[in-house]
Design a protein around this nucleic acid. Structure first.
Lengths: 334, 334
DNA sequence: AGCGGTCCCGTGAACGCTCACGGGAGCGCT
DNA sequence: AGCGCTCCCGTGAGCGTTCACGGGACCGCT
């Protein structure tokens, strides 16, 4: 914690301006906030004095007396992952329509940063939106009495609101599509989970079973393109017969796409690839990425709206079922 | 213990907790801030009371009395553009080492939003970092007496600090590379500037002139992949003889890459493409993007460090020349 | 002269918290 | 008993701003 103001001059307050302009602090306040009940000459004099002194009103004092400033914290694991960026962008925009401020925290996908961020955030924002991997109880401990909206989290606590991402049908459609194309050996590159496999993996195995094919060829990957590439190599080494892969998300898929190219496998002829998320980025790939796409824009908006609801009535909780459906969007890679 | 806080209950303060626990507010403060001079039993009692009441300290009141919370505003034109995301990510990380908070504002690349954001920001943050297209005087009007660090802005005001991006040599090297490869008809896809052509265009024409080739084949594009694609088509229609293009940035270059593919021109054989920025994203393209790369990580760090300097000594200003050099990074596309 | 109204402007209070100080209770020691 | 010390705890003040109120000055009208 570095001391904030190292400057030598102490802060200049409204009283300094008042004294300098020869008026009361209330008159200064009137001038600055553009209210009436003030003579235009004195107003100008006050404004001049304020500028001369370099006066800037304290946001803390102002916030203390008028309760109209809302700041919500947005916690995401990795700003460099376009998926989170898309969500963040839409959340930012939705927040702006409410006149709310958004402070962004990047936890770098590390659990300890998550806790530290939570610690800090709890005393700095009025509500929290984000992706968390920590336990409900840890979350609860830091966000006591604060609206919390979780995204893409499965364990449905009654304490927090959460926006569920439902890709069951989308993944089913993806597998169906692959099967229709003649693929019978379909692998999956899952997220390198902390412990258990992801829900998307569950959807995949279910879909595979429904089509009577083997859903057991799975490897884990970091949520990066490089991670996806390495995982694909691993998968193909273990199971050379694989002709199609479904990946945890688009970033991993993109890495797999590149790795396939390096291995001399052309997509989609030698290897079909289907991602998850439907990032705009996928459309730029060669071939364009087929993906089980979800509406990230809607995600951000939904999160903000839920915060608004929680704020106006804390008992709203998670009674309403917030869900974003992901559906198969066909493109070149499968 | 039901949280009796109905929808319309007023905020619970430290005094409520004190009353509920049968102690003074100071004792409550001691318990919550983990200070000593308090019995462990009373401490626990206070903590329990606080939790029961759903008490959360006011960040305004706390910020008013202890001046240790720094919030800096980061203003970027478009969060969906990976370039700005990379800068934002590094700035976020650098800010964290100072214990500072960063609120992000996306101006959607619109001038009016920029002004509105500036308006709002001026009373909500302690310093501003960002990309602005508005005039110095407008900027000055809103940020009076506040540290401001501009990125990639050319007009060097003495009022603000600014981090200059120097790509002159990098662009020169890019053109030299293309010429060495036998290209003589080199076009450029510039940014659709508000009025005047970009500084990068200036570098390009200078480099072209230095190599005795025509630097006049230029078209403008939106800062999107689609914009880049459309611009390339426009360029090739007007100048079919072009065999290489330099683009304002990587996003545009990526769009051009895709468009070239659609037009049946293979890269780099039929058309060489060189971008600017050196985004990580470029490495995922096919072929990987050659670019005049700059260190976005360093950019964010530099900006934060400059804020720190301005804060400790406001007279620092822009005396020091802050600059990030961009240099040619060869890859597949040229 | 008296009254009502408009136009300015200033004074106390409040917002919720922390800091600096003061002080009582209990203990051991001379 | 008197002194000093430690351990807790509470009281006043103040952070910088806005809100609610009060009031003086001036004008016009009856």
């Amino acid at each position: 914690m570095v001391s904030a103001s190292g400057a030598e001059s102490r802060k200049v307050t409204i009283n300094d301006v008042a004294r300098s302009a020869g008026v009361s602090r209330q008159t200064v306040s009137r001038a600055l906030n553009d209210k009436d009940e003030i003579d235009s000459d004195t107003k100008q004099r006050v404004l001049d004095a304020a500028r001369a002194l370099g006066y800037r009103p304290s946001r803390f004092a102002r916030g203390l007396v008028r309760q109209d400033t809302m700041t919500i914290g947005l916690v995401i694991p990795d700003l460099l992952n376009p998926y989170f960026t898309e969500v963040a962008a839409s959340a930012l925009e939705a927040a702006r329509t409410h006149g709310w401020h958004v402070v962004v925290y990047d936890t770098a996908d590390r659990a300890e940063e998550e806790l530290g961020t939570l610690q800090v955030i709890s005393s700095q924002v009025d509500a929290v939106i984000g992706y968390f991997s920590c336990s409900d109880s840890e979350l609860e401990a830091f966000t006591r009495g604060m609206p919390v909206v979780l995204i893409g989290r499965e364990g449905r606590s009654t304490r927090f609101s959460s926006i569920r991402i439902d890709g069951r049908e989308g993944v089913h459609a993806a597998v169906a599509h692959l099967v229709a194309k003649g693929h019978t050996r379909i692998g999956m590159v899952d997220h390198q989970a902390r412990a258990e496999p992801s829900i998307r993996h569950t959807w995949f195995t279910a879909a595979a079973a429904a089509h009577g094919i083997d859903g057991g060829m799975v490897v884990g990957a970091d949520q990066t393109a490089d991670g996806g590439g390495a995982a694909l190599r691993e998968l193909l080494t273990a199971h050379p017969e694989v002709t199609a892969v479904f990946t945890f998300n688009d970033i991993i898929a993109i890495g797999a796409l590149r790795e396939a190219r390096r291995l001399g496998r052309s997509v989609p002829q030698d290897l079909a690839v289907i991602g998850f998320d439907g990032l705009q980025l996928g459309a730029l790939m060669e071939p364009p990425l087929t993906s089980v796409a979800l509406d990230t824009r809607q995600l951000g908006v939904l999160a903000i709206e839920q915060v608004a609801r929680l704020l106006s009535d804390p008992r709203t909780l998670a009674v309403e079922d917030l869900v974003v459906h992901a559906e198969l969007r066909l493109s070149g890679s499968a």
